[in-house]
């Protein structure tokens, strides 16, 4: 039964729904805005050169995050080469060498499952294997190896996608000129895939920089540590500093401001990394 009233009802609900969907999608942005505003309002006043270059201190107005910045850098010094080498190597094997079959499917499923394992489980693996069994202690190397395992699936999958996106005629042309498989991969395919591989690696890296749970499990103490000078030193990182200052803020309210200031530093680093990734993608990615 079609009446005019029913038609109007349908039109009005349609308009209403449109508005509701828009409102819902703006909600996320609103939260993002509130979060950033809160953090900046609380932390900006504490951000000064003393904070960036100072050492940890229990006195809020003397505390600095130099150690955490260095720790984060050293951690990256372990994670970047390891994940790039293993991640790209694995992607090349799976895309270029592995025969399509049961084994390849199994490895692929395994990688997908690893990507879904909670980060804290990687922390337990790292704590058991690197910190205790191999007796590294809670040094940069142990944290870096753990983080590498955590982000490896991301690097592998994004590198695979980068290789898969290369049109097949490039490889065929190279083979036609008499190049061997490795020559083709090294001189033709990898240079083409490099920008999007780099983008994927940077995104994986920013995950590793912001991740906290595995390092808490490995046991990074809230002590005043010396600045780490190599990968065998004990260390702390920016997220750990945020964690300790946040939970300590119930003891001393100023600690929350320190946490907020550290968050600004962390988010700035992540923002710069992501911007780099976007620039690389837009500038160097070739279309065929």
């Amino acid at each position: 039964m079609v009446t005019r009233g029913y038609f109007r009802y349908r039109m009005i609900t349609n308009q209403f729904a449109r508005f509701a969907f828009l409102a819902a999608s703006l909600f996320g942005l609103l939260v993002l805005f509130v979060l950033l505003y809160r953090v900046i309002e609380q932390g900006a006043g504490w951000l000064n050169s003393g904070f960036l270059t100072g050492r940890l201190s229990t006195q809020p107005d003397q505390a600095g995050i130099k150690g955490a910045v260095f720790g984060t850098l050293w951690l990256m010094a372990v994670v970047i080469p390891l994940t790039t080498m293993v991640g790209v190597g694995t992607a090349i094997y799976l895309e270029m060498y592995a025969k399509k079959g049961k084994l390849r499917g199994l490895i692929q499923t395994n990688i997908a499952n690893l990507a879904g394992v909670p980060s804290i489980v990687y922390g337990i693996l790292g704590m058991t294997l690197f910190v205790r069994a191999l007796d590294f202690g809670n040094i940069v190397l142990a944290g870096g190896l753990t983080m590498s395992l955590l982000v490896l699936p991301i690097v592998i999958v994004s590198s695979q996608e980068a290789i898969r996106a290369i049109p097949s005629f490039l490889g065929e042309a190279s083979y036609g000129l008499g190049a061997t498989k490795w020559q083709t991969i090294k001189s033709v395919l990898l240079p083409v895939a490099l920008p999007s591989m780099l983008t994927g690696s940077i995104l994986a890296l920013s995950r590793a920089i912001g991740e906290t749970a595995p390092l808490v499990v490995i046991g990074i103490p809230a002590l005043l540590l010396p600045i780490p000078m190599n990968i065998f030193d004990k260390f702390t990182v920016l997220p750990m500093q945020i964690y300790y200052w946040t939970i300590d803020s119930s003891l001393l309210a100023e600690y929350a401001n320190l946490a907020a200031a550290t968050i600004i530093v962390l988010l700035t680093i992540l923002f710069l990394l992501n911007a780099t990734a976007i620039i690389i993608r837009n500038k160097f990615e070739q279309r065929f």
């Binding site: 996320g28 912001g210 907020a260």
Partner: peptide, 16 residues
Amino acid sequence: LAGIPTIVYGFFAFTF
């Protein structure tokens, strides 16, 4: 929004 580290969300939940 998806790229913000969870520790930052934790801070947001606790202090705001």
